[in-house]
Nucleic acid binder design. Structure first.
Lengths: 201, 201
DNA sequence: CCTACCGATCGGTAGG
DNA sequence: CCTACCGATCGGTAGG
């Protein structure tokens, strides 16, 4: 019981994780349907049939990618949400955390697959995902309520949250790492867009 | 020359347009890669090889769908932009026009394919599309500049426009026709979100 | 995890 | 615009 299947020794290569990473990148680049098992297999140096040793179907690979995506985003934003700072600083930290996952090298493939390929999951898996997304959005609900309580925004309604998450998630479409703006700057500008200029200028 | 190929008599069915419409719907529902020529052919009551009488490749069908999408949106928003109303009313009318195309029955399949499937175009076609999108965004640039000139918003920067278009385009992900909000209401709420409460409350 | 392979299906073409 | 078909490729399996 010392080294169970769920916690392999750190030095042994985790081929399953390699597959998930490669699948995430390819699903992001070419889309789920246009990515073949052979693409994924060759990306990790396997023969064409070998990924099925780790996953029963291509579908299961998508599921793993998508769950990795929502999990990473949730974790990063939760940490920012619980930092104990004032409402505006907390909000900005949450924006930064979400954008880091969406646009940063670590998470962007998983995040993009989550946002754009999850519709290829079957209904049961979709439902599972919706539940996780709802849990995630609760954190934003609280953040907006706190901003309103501090008099920084006028509207913390459901639709306001959808507009905010839209502006946030749409960055995937136009952000370029080599572009003029850093993730940090985008987070600050979005905070200003939603709240208005910083207090006492 | 009375009835040329580019302007067929109104009563003769336009099979090409039928194909574009069916392709748009299927690309929206299943994605470009997961949609087969046979799907499209059968949706318009043709045999499996017959769409190739109208289009050289599947790729060309996507191009037609995407161009139809950007064309319809541009036309609708341009009309609102040139209505000669005051800045805030013009802005709201533009929001409504954009959302009508994105969420209404007429345009939503084309719009969704434009937003989510155009990456399957090849580089030359992508460039063509980028030019059309740039032309489109100029209208929003002007609208935001006018709002700022009227003192209704503080920020009309490039990134502010991207946030706005993000909130706008993301509606595709959550809007449901049978839901509690009309397109009209969403347009008004987004205007308030960007501008703040209507002047003199 | 590899090699060899299966049945199904794909985009596209030929010949009317 | 249809029918019949082509070569290529797909997800997945068997048997090591």
């Amino acid at each position: 019981m010392a080294a169970s299947k769920t916690k392999p020794a750190a030095e042994e290569p985790n081929r399953r994780a390699d597959i998930v990473r490669a699948a995430g990148r390819l699903f992001h680049e070419k889309g789920y349907s246009a990515t073949t098992i052979r693409d994924i297999a060759h990306a990790v140096g396997m023969g064409s049939g070998s990924p099925f040793y780790h996953f029963k179907t291509k579908h299961d690979m998508l599921r793993a990618v998508v769950l990795e995506g929502i999990g990473a985003i949730h974790q990063a934003v939760a940490k920012a949400a619980n930092s104990g700072k004032a409402p505006r600083a907390t909000f900005e930290a949450m924006l930064r955390a979400h954008l880091d996952q969406l646009l940063g090298e670590q998470g962007r493939d998983f995040a993009a697959a989550l946002l754009h390929e999850s519709r290829h999951l079957d209904p049961a898996e979709q439902a599972e995902l919706v539940a996780l997304k709802d849990r995630y959005e609760v954190m934003w609900q609280k953040a907006l309520r706190d901003l309103k309580g501090a008099g920084l925004i006028a509207d913390d309604s459901h639709v306001a949250r959808l507009f905010l998450l839209g502006a946030l998630n749409w960055t995937v479409q136009w952000y370029r790492p080599e572009g003029p703006r850093t993730v940090e700057q985008i987070a600050r500008q979005l905070a200003s867009f939603v709240i208005g200029k910083p207090q006492r200028p």
